[in-house]
């Protein structure tokens, strides 16, 4: 049951990781094309230039839950390294419940109002020829934080499973 829930969430986080990877490649192409157009053709598009930071921001924000799922967030392992699986799991459960979930949920909550405001005002770029629909990129903030909270739930589930059965969990979070 727990395992199944964890697997479903993991698939969601992996999906976000793939989306981010594609967004990154688009961003690379975007910057490259912008340089090429400006230098070779003396042609600058404000919309394309703004698209650069839209893609870049979406890429790292959506990457955060994915990185949590793959155990990529840095830990200081002065103590952690030497602990038993049981103790590591307890730290992850406690940290998840005390730090990660409240932080992500609270920021996500305020992010909703932030994006909603932009939607109501019809906010767009202040520069000529810039991008419209600013609310979309602003909505990435609550979405990414909620997704990170969801991914954090999977991390907690994973630790619970590890706590029950100290030998194996199916995914590698650096726990085992």
């Amino acid at each position: 049951m727990l395992l199944k829930a964890e697997k479903i969430i993991d698939r969601f986080s992996d999906f976000l990781g793939n989306v981010s990877a594609i967004i990154f490649l688009l961003m690379l192409a975007n910057v490259f094309i912008d340089v090429l157009m400006r230098y070779v053709f003396n042609d600058v598009s404000i919309a394309m230039q703004e698209m650069e930071w839209h893609l870049y921001a979406a890429m790292f924000m959506l990457g955060v839950p994915y990185t949590l799922r793959t155990g990529g967030h840095v830990r200081v392992d002065l103590v952690y390294e030497g602990l038993s699986v049981k103790r590591k799991s307890i730290i992850d459960i406690a940290g998840g419940l005390l730090f990660l979930l409240p932080f992500c949920l609270l920021v996500g909550w305020y992010g909703v109002g932030f994006a909603h405001e932009a939607y109501l005002l019809g906010e767009k770029s202040g520069d000529p020829g810039g991008l419209t629909h600013r609310w979309i990129i602003k909505a990435v903030i609550p979405f990414a934080f909620f997704a990170t909270a969801v991914s954090g739930v999977a991390m907690i589930l994973n630790a619970i499973i590890a706590l029950k059965d100290e030998h194996e969990t199916h995914s590698d979070r650096g726990l085992l």
Binding site: R38, N42, D43, V44, I46, Q49, E50, D127, P128, G129
Partner: peptide, 15 residues
């Protein structure tokens, strides 16, 4: 806005 004015004359406002 000034960038928009210049753009009309063929300049390329750049961020």
């Amino acid at each position: 806005f000034a960038g928009e004015v210049l753009a009309k004359l063929g300049a390329s406002p750049t961020n």
